[in-house]
Write a protein that binds this DNA or RNA. Structure first.
Lengths: 334, 334
DNA sequence: ATATTTTATGCAAACGATTGTACAAACCTT
DNA sequence: AAGGTTTGTACAATCGTTTGCATAAAATAT
């Protein structure tokens, strides 16, 4: 691999001249510059980013930490992050923690010192102390999808409101026994979605029935088992509000396997609007999160921070989520 | 951020002693080592990987290049790569090209010089000249999922055979008019899957009917449009062999939207076995690729190469894929 | 023509680690 | 007790860049 010295020798100048000719920050004689460029081409020279980063204290690289790469939500966000980063000349390192906080700390530690200029976390939890510390240390950090209070910059949807609207829609279409399949309640996001559910019921004068509240914790558990168990016990909801599309898929499968129809016997509403959700049977009515857009915004925020934009107060940015109505909900008369 | 000098000062030794105490390759007085460790802890010292890489000419980082992060095949592979890499102390940088060869070259260029110690490509095409050049240059390179001839190491399934078996299964279950939804035929993988289809038909004395051969090229096109168009023209197959699960999902939706049933009127076989495929309606009969395993193997191969294992001839490794039979195929009598 | 400013370039130090060489102190040997 | 080992440490060079400072050459001003 050619180094700056090789280029210098070939062009008959010093390394510093080559450096300046390439950076363009300092005037260099036109003819000299051409000789340098010619040598660069001839030797296929590529500046060593390591050395450059070492000197400049900056690598134009950001880390994106996701909890589960196999959940399509995160690839969609990642695409948004990547596109914006590329536009600004940044490279993104995608790290998958599999919800394992130790793995996460490990990644952060590795990437921390000079490797990356900032982080985007899609893994935040209330107790993510290390993220908080990173921020305290002055490291640019932005959260996406999941957030932690108001202390750290974030780009998220209004989970409470979206959930409230979705359940309200079920109520307005005549549903009375609405089951919720909730995710890991130690995540703010699921707490909020549950609150939305609870308040929507409450606002309609409907009770929260414990046997219709299903908690699904495991990383790749889509709730198929929980719904099946409920149905086998003879507990029959008229609708299921799934707090993610994979869980909606699990629920639909479970309902059908019990010989019931969707939405004939039980309506289902999901949350995410994955690429495939429109192609399910029935096409899924679901809360659409603008995942790409969220990733893109998070990236823009992070890059601004890295470029030293005076951030002032951290700000959690709410983006709009909409209920997209397809065919998994049936209007019921009473 | 604390540097090795700060640690040295605090421990009252020289930087070199700190380095040696940490690496453990050279004996250091026990008491000195303890003082060093104590200082390391106190200052929360983390060696600067940039500087280390600069010196050692190695970063313990590998690049994983995927064509479309939103296709669940690649996250599954990525997980395998990541787990093995972590085990060996490597970090993986995941880059998504969105099938854009320019973006890919860009990534490679950026990561090339000293950034990464090797590459895993899931993007290979016959004409991927840059991958070939990288290999020629002595850069460790392994391909996965997609390969290019015998010239570069790869971990793939036997696409021809798997496809042949899947179509043979359809024939054995009484299907005669088998439609294929094929992917981008400039990819070896899809050429092979098509050949498997063709030969299976041929072996059974069945003709290849052009109107039953659907090509779907676009990145996020799941074939819904193509199948709908075919059906609307009154062309009715008794089975669809989709060369990927997303395409199977598109096909099922299209068939149902035309008022037909799966598998009642038309059977469907997919290819991939994604996490959700078992939960579709009907649960999808599909060729199961051991994606995680493929990623893991590719990573192991790459790391061996990086560690200077004499590789000799490049080897393309075939892993087993099996048809998993669920409920999207109906046995037909004639 | 000489003095002054401008422009272009080279030299050398720095970034933060690793490592070969050298040397001092402590231990053995006889 | 003197010579030979062993052991532990420090010094300095090195990796490939960038950049402040110095300087030579060219351009401008007087």
């Amino acid at each position: 691999m050619a180094t700056i010295k090789d280029v210098a020798k070939r062009a008959g100048v010093s390394p510093s001249t080559v450096s300046r000719a390439l950076s363009g920050k300092v005037p260099v004689d036109k003819e000299t510059r051409e000789r340098v460029m010619e040598a660069v081409r001839a030797l296929n020279y590529k500046p060593n980013i390591l050395a450059k980063g070492l000197k400049e204290g900056r690598t134009n690289t950001v880390g994106l930490i996701v909890p589960n790469i196999c959940n399509p939500v995160f690839p969609a966000v990642a695409r948004g992050v990547e596109d914006v980063a590329r536009e600004h000349g940044f490279t993104v390192i995608l790290c998958n923690t599999d919800e394992n906080i130790e793995a996460e700390k490990d990644y952060v530690e590795k990437l921390q010192k000079r490797w990356v200029d900032g982080f985007i976390f899609a893994t935040a939890r209330e107790e993510s102390q290390h993220i908080f510390e990173l921020k305290e240390k002055g490291f640019p950090v932005v959260l996406v999808v999941r957030h932690m209070g108001q202390a750290v910059d974030a780009v998220v949807i209004d989970n409470y409101k979206s959930s409230f609207e979705a359940v309200k829609y079920l109520i307005n279409t005549g549903h009375r026994r609405i089951c919720i399949i909730n995710g890991d309640t130690s995540l703010t996001l699921y707490k909020e979605r549950f609150e939305g559910y609870r308040h929507a019921l409450q606002a309609a004068g409907l009770p929260v029935v414990p046997e219709l509240v299903l908690d699904v914790a495991g990383r790749d558990d889509n709730g198929y088992g929980a719904v099946t168990a409920m149905l086998k016990k003879g507990i029959l909801p008229d609708a299921v509000f799934a707090t993610s599309d994979p869980r909606a898929i699990g629920a639909i499968r479970a309902i059908k396997d019990c010989g019931l129809s969707v939405p004939g016997d039980v309506s289902v509403v999901g949350f995410d609007d994955l690429d495939i959700s429109a192609f399910l049977d029935p096409p899924l009515t679901t809360v659409s999160q603008p995942l790409y857009e969220m990733g893109a915004r998070a990236a823009r925020r992070l890059i601004d921070m890295i470029n030293g934009e005076k951030s002032g107060q951290p700000k959690v940015e709410l983006v709009e989520a909409n209920l997209v109505i397809r065919k998994s909900v049936k209007v019921r008369e009473h």
